[in-house]
Amino acid sequence: MRKILIVIDMQKDFVDGALGTKEAVAIVPNVVEKIKRYDIKDVFATRDTHQPNYMETQEGKNLPVVHCVEGTEGWEINKAVAAVLDGATIFDKPTFGSAALCDAILKLSKEEELEIEMVGLCTDICVVSNALMLKAFMPEVKISVDSSCCAGVTVEKHEAALETMRSCQINVI
């Protein structure tokens, strides 16, 4: 069985930038150590990727904080995480969930048996969105989320997202 790791949006703006939190900063060492446990060919990552017109988008109207604009420092993956992601497959995504990531993982699941582990930011937005998308496309694939390698917008929202994932048969560790 091939075990893969998906690292969601470990970008400067979510760690210690425009939308950063102390909880996000605190998980960086855990995420780095988690990535080191995997062969880099089995590591996939996402980058939240917005354009300069972000504030005009549906998301921008609902979350009016400019963040992760492609090419900016805030869009870049946290330096410590980026140092261990070298060689990983990275998907830029314009919204919470990544259809391209799901397509790639679904294709792999048809070639060999998979087990998926997920980490990253923010638990209650992009982590839960991608976890539920993957589960919907691959209901028989074991998917887990390492809660010590995730942080939410708030501690309460982090916990609520973990509970939502548990309810949808995603293993929370």
Rank of each mutant, 00 (worst) to 15 (best):
N78A: 11
N78E: 15
N78D: 15
N78H: 15
K79M: 05
K79H: 09
K79S: 15
K79L: 12
A80H: 08
A80E: 15
A80S: 13
V81F: 12
V81N: 01
A82Y: 01
A83V: 05
A83D: 12
V84I: 04
V84C: 11
L85P: 00
L85Q: 04
L85W: 06
L85S: 04
L85R: 04
L85K: 06
L85I: 08
D86Q: 15
D86I: 03
D86R: 12
D86E: 15
G87N: 11
G87W: 05
G87Y: 07
G87L: 10
A88F: 10
A88D: 05
A88K: 07
T89W: 02
T89G: 04
T89Y: 04
I90F: 12
I90D: 05
F91W: 07
F91I: 02
F91K: 03
F91P: 01
D92H: 12
D92Y: 04
D92G: 06
D92P: 02
D92Q: 13
D92R: 12
D92A: 13
K93R: 11
K93E: 08
P94Q: 12
P94A: 14
P94C: 10
P94D: 09
P94K: 14
T95S: 15
T95Q: 14
T95W: 11
F96R: 01
F96H: 06
F96Q: 01
G97M: 07
S98V: 10
S98Q: 10
A99V: 15
A100T: 14
A100Y: 10
A100G: 03
A100I: 05
L101E: 03
L101T: 07
L101F: 05
C102R: 06
C102I: 15
C102P: 00
C102D: 07
D103L: 13
D103R: 14
D103F: 14
D103I: 10
A104F: 11
I105V: 15
I105W: 08
I105M: 07
I105T: 04
L106S: 11
L106T: 14
L106K: 14
L106C: 05
K107A: 14
L108P: 01
L108K: 14
S109G: 14
K110R: 14
E111P: 02
E111H: 06
E111T: 08
E111F: 02
E111I: 11
E111Y: 02
E111N: 08
E112M: 10
E112R: 09
E112N: 07
E112D: 12
E112L: 05
E112A: 14
E112W: 02
E113K: 15
E113P: 00
E113S: 13
E113W: 07
E113M: 09
E113Y: 10
L114N: 01
E115T: 10
E115W: 03
I116S: 00
I116V: 12
E117K: 07
E117V: 02
M118A: 05
M118D: 00
M118W: 00
M118L: 13
M118N: 00
